[in-house]
Design a protein around this nucleic acid. Structure first.
Lengths: 273, 273
DNA sequence: GGATATGGATACTCTGAAGGTATGGATTCA
DNA sequence: TGAATCCATACCTTCAGAGTATCCATATCC
């Protein structure tokens, strides 16, 4: 199959509207209609049930949307990885607050390796690391289980922490030595992107989250290590029965790059124990 | 990136010769040279070191070959899976001899499910199941670990067996009650495709293997269950310290098809214990 | 060392696929 | 019933991709 056709198909499948999809693709509507028809004819299945008023995916269309997206990201990933293969430099994707204080150690450890190359650290917004890794923009990423998803990646677990409640210092529970989850039952938690809305404010990055907590609009359960770099108007209070999460370094399963292997090793050696 | 360019690149990378690659692609050499030049220019890296006498992959080229092959199979897989999504039918890929006698049970179990759909069984030659699964030709495959590789697939282990030595009845060891690996040290084992040559005859399918064993040209270590359907001129002799192998059913990690889930369940329920 | 062969690059020509505009025809809605 | 919406069709245009002929560099051989 031609990747152009697939890109067009995905656009229509996402918009469920030929006109809008055409605009998004920067072409006129008629050639888009034709291309989709050609695609359907060539592969021999109907992809959309369309009336003159509505467009809906068929079962086959749903499958093609799902698998096709994968194929397209694989395509762009191939290109990006090839581009970056020339320049001897690693890109490490990480979230701003949840590196468990390990990031500096990892970089120092790795830099001590005489064969080390330059490491570019890309601070990502929430959930973005996996995308960067999948699209070949990054060589490795620090992920946090179970929040992040490592399917299709190899990974090494680095450290497991319990969450603490991050509260404004003015919060009624801020002075407590420790809390239990039931103490937090009435609280408003943030709405993480990619998760179902829970009534809380939508949060895209760490600074924004901290600001919202400071304003008393939400509170959050974050890994213990974040306590070391909280703003002065916030406080982290232990929660005895809080969930734990595990920091891991992940990389594309099939990568056989030496510098990457050294970086992973440095990360593992930087982890406690 | 355009999939056409990538296909052209892969052809040249595999042939390391523009003329041959062009022939293979069914086009003339000049447009191929131009397309590769355009690709290099667009992504900004040199993919081949070429003199007027030789063509060699650069590091970036190697990366693109590896990743690009993946992307192309993902592309064809997307198409095949979409094509097959319409017709309610499952394709199960398996090797001819190594189903552990389980295949019939699985099919019977599954057919008993009132919601079951037709199952096409594709008998594969060695190592072909993973390819069929990867390319979207099959919905599930019976694999044998550690011989087969399940990377990128989900799987359930079904049963573990110890290998027996399959010998011609005329073989000097054929009458023995049992053997050890050291008894077999002087024997000629077959050359499995995809493995380094070991001097033995290259074997592509089961019938061929059995024939070669009967002729005394080779012997093989095969799962115990194959003893039930050996030719009468062959015999399977237990080997006390032979390696074990595990039969598993594998499927594309991200498949969410109901009939497939039912088939997997039937397979698990068909397995001993 | 000159003749020959090999193999990728370049110059040019041409065709068809991809894109554009105009419009048709079905459905919804006021 | 008329207007609006939206996908399909008809027809035209353009440029990317394919072809042929040829050049140029290097290896090979007598």
């Amino acid at each position: 199959m031609d990747s152009r056709e697939l890109r067009y198909f995905v656009a229509v499948a996402e918009e469920l509207h030929f006109g809008r999809a055409a605009t998004r693709l920067g072409i006129a509507q008629p050639p888009l209609s034709r291309t989709i028809q050609q695609l359907e004819r060539r592969i021999g299945v109907t992809l959309f049930d369309r009336t003159s008023r509505s467009v809906a995916l068929t079962t086959a269309g749903e499958v093609l949307l799902h698998e096709g997206r994968r194929a397209l990201t694989a395509l762009t990933a191939a290109e990006r990885r090839a581009q970056r293969a020339g320049s001897p430099r690693l890109v490490l994707a990480t979230k701003p607050i949840s590196d468990g204080g390990l990031l500096e150690k990892i970089l120092a450890h790795y830099a001590a390796d005489p064969a080390s190359v330059e490491v570019e650290v890309r601070i990502c917004s929430i959930g973005e690391q996996a995308v960067l890794l999948r699209e070949g923009e990054a060589d490795a990423a620090l992920l946090r289980f179970p929040h992040d998803d490592a399917d299709g990646f190899a990974y090494e677990e680095l450290l497991t922490e319990q969450d603490v409640a991050v509260l404004p210092r003015t919060h009624r529970l801020a002075a407590r030595e420790s809390l239990t989850m039931s103490d937090l039952s009435g609280e408003q938690f943030p709405h993480w992107p990619g998760f179902p809305p829970n009534g809380g404010p939508l949060v895209r990055d760490a600074a924004q989250l901290m600001q919202l907590i400071a304003l008393g609009r939400t509170i959050a359960l974050l890994p213990e290590s974040t306590r070391h770099h909280l703003r002065t108007d916030l406080i982290g209070v232990p929660v005895t029965d809080a969930p734990t999460s595990t920091l891991a370094i992940a990389w594309p399963e099939d990568s056989r790059s030496r510098p990457l292997a050294a970086l992973v090793e440095a990360a593992v050696n930087s982890a406690p124990r």
